[in-house]
């Protein structure tokens, strides 16, 4: 009888722990969270790994807005050959000091299927993005924060036609 009580307690404890751990993990992890990859991200650091907000929550932006981004980097990227039509979407972090890094990308064609982009073109886009220095990090009245940012590169008939 004694052992049955202990087994009941042990099992109920383990089930509760596993459920709580699972719930906590599922609630904490979000779509689009970008984990660090030292090899890919080099020395880019975020200020608080546990609090990286979304771009639309706290007005993260480049000085002069997306128009300024386009004006600055479009000329050096428009001559590249991109093969096909679709959208290359870059997601990256603007850290609390206004530095950018941890670049990840996805590309979709007009049917919303995955589209292949040459690594050389991706490298050139990242290189162009890294030249952008006037980022306004997410902020409120008290502090500045890390946040994600999304930038789209529109491709039509093998050429870059828009950045937004």
């Amino acid at each position: 009888m004694k052992s049955k009580t202990n087994i009941f307690l042990l099992i109920s404890f383990l089930v509760a722990i596993i459920l709580t751990g699972w719930l906590n993990y599922q609630a904490k992890n979000r779509i689009g969270d970008l984990s660090e990859n030292k090899e890919q991200d080099h020395d880019f650091q975020v200020c608080n790994e546990d609090r990286i907000t979304q771009y639309y929550g706290m007005d993260t932006d480049f000085e002069g807005g997306k128009r300024a981004i386009k004006n600055k980097i479009f000329p050096e990227l428009e001559e590249l050959n991109y093969k096909g039509s679709g959208l290359i979407t870059f997601r990256f972090i603007v850290n609390c000091e206004g530095e950018i890094g941890r670049f990840r990308h996805k590309a979709t064609d007009l049917d919303m299927e995955e589209m292949a982009i040459s690594p050389a073109n991706i490298e050139k886009i990242e290189g162009a993005l890294l030249k952008l220095k006037n980022w306004n990090p997410a902020s409120n009245d008290y502090n500045t924060y890390d946040s994600y940012y999304v930038l789209n590169f529109k491709i039509r008939n093998d050429k870059l036609v828009d950045i937004f």
């Binding site: 779509i31 689009g32 979304q54 639309y56 959208l87 979407t89 870059f90 997601r91 996805k106 979709t108 919303m112 299927e113 995955e114 994600y148 999304v150 789209n152």
Partner: peptide
């Protein structure tokens, strides 16, 4: 997914 750029 769409808000965060995961359009596929």
């Amino acid at each position: 997914f769409n808000k965060r750029g995961y359009y596929e």
